[in-house]
Nucleic acid binder design. Structure first.
Lengths: 124, 124
DNA sequence: GGGCGAATGATAATTGATTCTCGATTCGCG
DNA sequence: CGCGAATCGAGAATCAATTATCATTCGCCC
């Protein structure tokens, strides 16, 4: 059971992009390969790729969910305020030792850095 | 022109709570003072309190916006996975020195710690 | 006590993301 | 080549948060 060309286009779009993509970005990218690709197909594929463990969902405040390859090292994200693109940041600063109020138990954390990506910083 | 009793109830609910509240939480709390308080009034009040600089909006992935008193020191938040309440965490760990890709410019950052709050950790 | 403009509250409308529906298309396989 | 199942794609439907509408109510002045 080979994979359909749309799924393949979707996976390739995600691998090509060096950053987490939103469903909209995925359609746009993957339509280079499959022009009539529908958004519903993208959502279906994203969901199953997440289930398979091939993709990881990245949630950001006020933004549609982004998707990136799963299995990377612990890392965080950069959100450009200008172009709204999300980028991956290498590693986790200082491995984050937050003092919690007593009784609280942490099991994970997220860091989002906001600003301008290289392209947007340049074009002021 | 004094402030209406509903606005007052809303402000008091937010001061009373030692943590950021969602609009829903605000209605629930403030209805202790004004039983027929409507959600629309809460949204209106929250917006204008933010405009006045009295409140700050706290955005979290996949959660409705929370509101807290503005003007606090730089700090971050804890999100309980069990009761969904958001708590304030004191200070910013290590003042966050994230290495950015070259050309990127940061102007802010957010840290969200996930886990269980004291009450929820206890009741397993 | 009545008049007025602003604020309220119940509900409908909007918005954006995501999911569902369903007819059309494609694929694997004999 | 042709069937049956799986997948697609377009648009409708859903869902949650938020905003708009509008008749009613409230606060305040004369």
């Amino acid at each position: 059971m080979g994979e359909t060309k749309q799924r393949q286009a979707i996976r390739e779009a995600l691998e090509r992009a060096a950053r987490p993509l939103s469903p909209q970005e995925v359609v746009a990218e993957a339509q280079a390969d499959v022009p009539r690709l529908g958004i519903a197909t993208v959502y279906r594929a994203l969901k199953s790729l997440v289930d398979e463990g091939w993709l990881a969902a990245v949630e950001l405040p006020g933004q549609p969910t982004r998707y990136e390859r799963a299995g990377k090292h612990h890392h965080h994200h950069f959100q450009c305020r200008r172009c709204d693109r999300t980028y991956e940041l290498p590693g986790c600063p200082s491995d984050l030792q937050v003092p919690l109020p007593k009784g609280f138990v942490a099991d994970d954390h997220e860091v989002v850095v906001y600003g301008r990506c290289a392209a947007c910083a340049r074009s002021k």
